[in-house]
Amino acid sequence: MSIPAFGLGTFRLQGQVVIDSVSTALALGYRVIDTAQIYENEAEVGEAIVASAIAREELFITSKIWVANLAGDRLIDSLKESLRKLQTDYLDLTLIHWPSPDDQVPVAEFMGALLEAKRLGLTRQIGVSNFTIDLMKQAVAAIGAEHIATHQIELHPYLQNRKIVEFARSQGIGITSYMTLAYGEVLKDPLIQQIAERLHATPAQVTLAWAMQSGYAVIPSSTRRANLESNLKARKLTLSEADMALIASLDRGHRLTSPKGIAPNWD
């Protein structure tokens, strides 16, 4: 099994806003939806999915286990609650959202519980998010790299996370890029705007195409139909090696997400 290259993110979208975003995306042809326990929108995402009447097997649904639910006796129960909210019998992918702060819950404990959830059929694939190389090594030692489908990390032209990517790939672990558009910051970049103009594309399409061509899955979010529709077209955009190299040169280690008390000591 593999992770689809393109999907819809729902971070920071709640209530009717997320229902409308997911409903519009599904109507436009999106089939991959990414949510999380801490987003507090799983029930609304589930509502939109059910209302779409799209067959479950056509969809790829991802959610993430919050840090408060990492203990071995809590993880599976919390996942079952997520399934109830999403109105589905299984997830296609379940991730550890953030590593346990100060290692309160050992990596081996929560990865073992996540693997058990997979064995129970609660999720088809499992993975991690926001891990350092050391934490990834611990996860691999705990359950084996073959069980870790992807590592979801902040990754955009201004933060290309090359050390993490290199290690994950050495283990056969895929990369999912979140915040690929850097909250819109990279869309204002003159270099990306120049490439977009030359290719008759949008800066968002160029950035998403760069990430996918780099081998990463992407999950951009939007509340506007026009943007949701436009982003889909990134799948058909091909950048030259020269353009890929130019975008690669934009890396400046500009991290946007590092919640105090939760984020690990980044590589």
Results as ranks from 00 to 15, higher is better:
42 E>A: 12
43 A>F: 01
45 V>K: 15
45 V>P: 15
45 V>A: 15
45 V>S: 15
46 G>S: 15
47 E>N: 12
48 A>Q: 10
48 A>P: 12
49 I>N: 06
49 I>L: 07
49 I>T: 02
51 A>V: 03
51 A>T: 11
52 S>A: 14
53 A>L: 06
53 A>M: 02
55 A>F: 07
56 R>Q: 08
56 R>L: 06
57 E>R: 14
57 E>S: 14
58 E>M: 07
58 E>N: 08
59 L>Q: 04
59 L>N: 04
59 L>F: 10
60 F>V: 03
60 F>Q: 10
61 I>Y: 05
61 I>Q: 00
62 T>E: 10
63 S>P: 00
63 S>R: 04
64 K>L: 12
66 W>H: 04
67 V>E: 10
67 V>W: 10
68 A>H: 13
70 L>C: 06
73 D>C: 12
73 D>K: 13
74 R>M: 08
75 L>W: 00
75 L>E: 02
76 I>C: 09
76 I>Q: 12
77 D>P: 14
78 S>H: 06
78 S>I: 01
78 S>N: 00
78 S>T: 06
79 L>V: 11
79 L>F: 10
80 K>T: 04
80 K>V: 08
81 E>S: 02
82 S>I: 08
83 L>M: 02
84 R>L: 10
86 L>P: 09
87 Q>W: 11
88 T>M: 14
89 D>V: 09
90 Y>P: 08
91 L>W: 07
92 D>H: 03
94 T>M: 13
94 T>P: 04
94 T>H: 08
94 T>S: 13
97 H>M: 04
101 P>S: 07
102 D>S: 09
103 D>K: 13
104 Q>D: 00
104 Q>P: 03
104 Q>I: 10
104 Q>S: 01
105 V>K: 11
105 V>Y: 05
105 V>W: 12
106 P>I: 14
106 P>Y: 15
106 P>R: 14
106 P>C: 14
107 V>P: 02
108 A>K: 13
110 F>D: 05
115 L>H: 05
115 L>K: 14
116 E>A: 11
117 A>V: 01
120 L>A: 15
122 L>R: 04
123 T>W: 05
124 R>F: 10
125 Q>F: 13
126 I>H: 06
127 G>W: 05
127 G>L: 01
128 V>T: 15
129 S>C: 14
130 N>P: 12
130 N>T: 11
131 F>R: 09
131 F>T: 00
131 F>S: 02
132 T>A: 01
132 T>S: 08
133 I>C: 07
133 I>N: 06
133 I>W: 08
134 D>Y: 12
136 M>F: 02
137 K>C: 03
137 K>W: 07
138 Q>G: 03
139 A>C: 04
139 A>I: 05
143 I>H: 07
143 I>M: 06
143 I>Y: 00
145 A>Y: 03
147 H>D: 00
148 I>H: 02
148 I>T: 00
149 A>V: 08
150 T>K: 04
150 T>H: 00
151 H>K: 06
152 Q>H: 10
153 I>Y: 07
154 E>C: 02
154 E>F: 06
155 L>A: 14
155 L>M: 15
156 H>W: 04
157 P>N: 01
157 P>V: 05
157 P>Q: 00
158 Y>Q: 03
159 L>T: 13
159 L>E: 15
161 N>Y: 01
161 N>V: 07
